[in-house]
Design a protein around this nucleic acid. Structure first.
Lengths: 336, 336
DNA sequence: TTTATTTACGTAAACGTTTACGGAAAAAAC
DNA sequence: GTTTTTTCCGTAAACGTTTACGTAAATAAA
């Protein structure tokens, strides 16, 4: 720990600790000359205030927590990027936690954060079913902002994208390009994020007078290593001519599966997916994506959290919806 | 802040705060029965110890800082993933900071961390020239572990990959596949990480009796938005038949540039790059990569930091070198 | 001149936790 | 039965910072 503290400064300057403290915080009850002296000495001795003493006294930490399912994910790492930038501007610190989609881990993080270690939480929910009571408990004591992965049953401030419109428009795009059997790779189905994406898909089908066909919706199993084989048999059995994937992680295996099965994208099968892959353009074929403004979501989420800090936060209950971009590329090109 | 603290617990239990504290830490001088009572009450009242009070008292934070150039980067996000997992196992918290390659920001973070906010630092250096004195200053007070982006002139514990061998072998691979003019996209040249990569390239050329040709080394400019045009003119003017890129960010523009210029990868130009792209396999053509074990680097770096916590850390001065993988794919396939 | 106000600083308590020290009671040793 | 040891708990101080309160001196108002 830094050995130079306020007492040391005070001693060197022949002042009281109180005066030094006030001088450092530019209090009006300290003379300009004294302030000068204190500032200089502080600089000379490389004084850094002890954050724990401050936090203990102030009951605030100048720290926020970010809880996400995974860090190593194009969407979340971009969102964290945005969050970090906003936090840095305000001299806040960012703690980071990943749940690996486990609501048990998620809950344990939340409970630990009730200690006051952070002034607020930014969270993107794990896909596992959540305990709503928990969030009520936490949000009574701490401002929480939910982003992207949200749940309708949990009250609070939320930043999302236009999930329903995104899938609706994506299906529309597939229909326009001649798809007759549009499969949906479903994920996040415990969250409203997932439900809305699903609903957009369903409604678009209905509006195009497509028959209802539950088998065309592939539901992800428990284990990630089954994804590939699941998708492969889905393609072989259901023979879709278009696939809309609700997450990037399910779209990539489609490439491999199609190669394996001998299907050409987009000639035999058109593919479109939510994705924040930087180089979707360079894939073979380039992937038509629903691109979420991940960085902006992070900026927005952090921004609103700081707004909340300055007001009585429980008055907030809005949901901010940012628009995703449908970027049309080769994987959905041409008609059959 | 959590309203229930040790004093409250003590009051409810008719005990002193000291006894409660000791009971919670399972001290031997508290009877089994009292411990039970305390634990129960703590659970019932949802007691969470105030971390700032503890930290203030203990002079340690149970927190580590991770400083990286960018979070939204395949390599760094994976490394952070590894770090977070190790930290979680030990009930440590992870603060995250990004420098955007600016050594000024980097320094400012380091200085702020001297306050004792963290028990140790994991850092991957910004590519801008660094002030070594700064690090000496910091590392006198705080354990630092450097990973991947390291600097020989800065003493300390380091986790790197076999940068020299990686580029050496990559060049060898290009030579074996018939390349005669092998260009190098240089980056990180202020760091030993970059220097070693460069040296591996140079030595491999020499060992293959290639003439020295400085023009074949493209040096990155200041601005990132110039990358594409720089690379394009590099390819047009130097007409390399093989390119080795020292970072992923310089390899991707090659794809676009080749398309623009009308060169076929790998027929006209073979490409190989350091990269942690998850789906390098799916690029068009799939990219031959030098894949760094990013996750493991994170795990290793965090692991050694925790080892240091338990010993007198300034006795450590090792460099741990993990092996990268050369994954051969289409972008270097075939002979001319 | 007297009184009121302002300026500039010091004293001491508080934030919540931990721990050195002390001590009463119980248990063990003599 | 006395002494020593052990068990179990309380008191109080400390970590470094902040701030309510107090106050002496300087200035302004009367």
């Amino acid at each position: 720990m830094g050995e130079v503290n306020i007492k040391k400064l005070a001693y060197e300057l022949n002042l009281s600790a109180a005066t030094v403290s006030r001088a450092l915080r530019d209090s009006h009850e300290i003379s300009a000359e004294t302030k000068m002296r204190v500032l200089e000495m502080a600089k000379r001795l490389n004084y850094e205030p002890n954050p724990f003493a401050s936090s203990l006294r102030h009951q605030k930490s100048k720290t926020i927590a970010v809880i996400v399912p995974e860090i190593a994910n194009n969407f979340f790492s971009l969102a964290i990027n945005g969050i970090e930038e906003v936090a840095r501007e305000r001299d806040y610190h960012v703690l980071i936690y990943q749940t690996h989609e486990s609501s048990k881990i998620e809950t344990s993080f939340l409970m630990r954060l009730l200690s006051g270690r952070v002034d607020g939480i930014l969270i993107s929910l794990a896909s596992e079913a959540v305990d709503k009571e928990n969030f009520k408990e936490v949000s009574k004591k701490l401002p929480i902002v939910f982003f992207d992965r949200v749940h309708d049953d949990i009250e609070g401030v939320k930043i999302t994208t236009d999930d329903y419109d995104s899938t609706y428009n994506a299906v529309q795009h597939l229909v326009e390009n001649g798809c007759k059997r549009i499969g949906y790779l479903r994920a996040l189905d415990t969250l409203s994020t997932g439900k809305k994406r699903m609903q957009g898909y369903l409604d678009a089908l209905k509006d195009n007078n497509f028959p209802e066909e539950p088998a065309l919706v592939m539901i992800e199993g428990e284990k990630k290593d089954q994804r590939y084989s699941l998708i492969k048999s889905f393609i072989e059995e259901q023979k879709p001519d278009g696939i809309l994937s609700s997450i990037e992680e399910l779209a990539m295996p489609c490439y491999y599966a199609c190669k394996e099965v001998g299907l050409n994208i987009p000639k035999d099968l058109k593919l479109i997916s939510f994705s924040n892959l930087t180089h979707a353009e360079l894939l073979n074929p380039s992937l038509t994506t629903i691109n979420q403004p991940a960085f902006e979501i992070g900026v927005e989420a952090a921004g609103i959290l700081f707004k909340i800090f300055n007001k009585r936060w429980y008055e907030f209950n809005e949901t901010i919806v940012l628009k995703s971009n449908l970027i049309k590329r080769e994987s959905t090109r041409g008609n059959f």
